[in-house]
């Protein structure tokens, strides 16, 4: 209750007591007895009554409290050392400032162009696979449409090798949308990659395609295992890599533009930082 310490240097605190322990034990025994043998319940109830009587007695005025002496001087809290002066905000260039945003980024058009170029080159390995394997050029296209359309996986291989208008249009749509989306993502992500030579090509041409290829392999196994059977995975990987390398080269080669500065502005005082 936050009463200040009295002149003798004592603080009134509630005294240690065994009754809560006894009451809890009584309660548990009483419950145990209900499930097993009534005798235990009787013992439990007796314990509870004793504990409540003892507890109430300690609530009477003048009982149940003890005076605790203050700790020795050497065991008291060290007084807080006030630091004079106002506290500065953390700004770029100060030690401890770990705020890294790319200062220059690729324009949005770079992402779009990267996606388009990648998207135009990617069919080459895919169609090459179709023709060299003897399945014909339409199989990879039909499989792509199967991502979105239901019941494609129920078609026979012979059917999948035929040209089908709906599947062709859907596949083109999917291809354009995904190519553009990933191209745009490249425009945003590649400038954040650490700046050593070739790092951006490595990330865009190898690491990212490897990640989404793995993810689509796993996901397709869960969502549409029948479709996965038809995909020839080595060629699939090759076409993803072609896309990645092409898109990354296009994006990296564009001129970067400076972002509008967002640091260094005078901020309102509320989000304060410790520079003490």
């Amino acid at each position: 209750m936050a009463e200040p310490s009295n002149p003798q240097g004592n603080v009134e605190l509630p005294a240690a007591t065994v009754w809560p322990l006894v009451l809890a034990a009584g309660l548990a025994l009483a419950g145990l007895g209900l499930a097993t043998s009534a005798l235990l319940s009787v013992v439990g109830l007796a314990l509870m009554v004793t504990a409540v009587v003892g507890w109430v007695a300690e609530l009477l005025p003048g009982r149940g409290h003890v005076a605790v002496p203050l700790a020795g001087v050497e065991r008291r809290p060290v007084p807080v050392k006030p630091l004079p002066g106002r506290v500065e905000q953390l700004r770029p260039g100060m030690p401890g400032h770990r705020f890294r945003l790319p200062e220059k980024v690729h324009p949005i058009s770079a992402g779009i162009r990267g996606g388009l170029v990648g998207g135009l080159l990617m069919p080459i390995p895919a169609l090459t696979y179709g023709i060299t394997s003897g399945h014909g050029p339409w199989l990879p296209i039909n499989l792509l449409a199967g991502l979105l359309l239901p019941r494609v996986e129920t078609q026979t291989l012979a059917e999948l090798e035929q040209f089908q208008w709906t599947l062709f249009l859907v596949a083109c749509g999917i291809h354009v949308v995904i190519s553009l989306t990933i191209g745009l993502l490249y425009g945003v992500l590649l400038p954040t990659v650490p700046a050593f030579p070739g790092a951006q090509l490595l990330a865009g041409g190898l690491i990212l395609p490897a990640m989404w290829t793995g993810a689509s392999y796993g996901l397709m196994g869960v969502l549409n295992p029948a479709l996965r059977e038809h995909v020839h995975w080595p060629w699939y990987v090759v076409s993803q890599l072609v896309f990645g390398v092409a898109a990354a080269i296009v994006v990296v080669r564009t001129e970067r533009v400076a972002v509008a500065p967002i640091v260094g502005r005078e901020l309102p005082p509320a989000p304060r930082e410790d520079r003490a």
Binding site: E3, T17, P20, A24, A25, A28, L32, W55, E58
Partner: peptide, 24 residues
Amino acid sequence: GARDMAFPRLNALGLWTTLFGGLV
């Protein structure tokens, strides 16, 4: 900035009932 909880003995009861409940 308080010296203890509002009901220190009730607090002890809570601990022991939790323990004994688990034991049961």
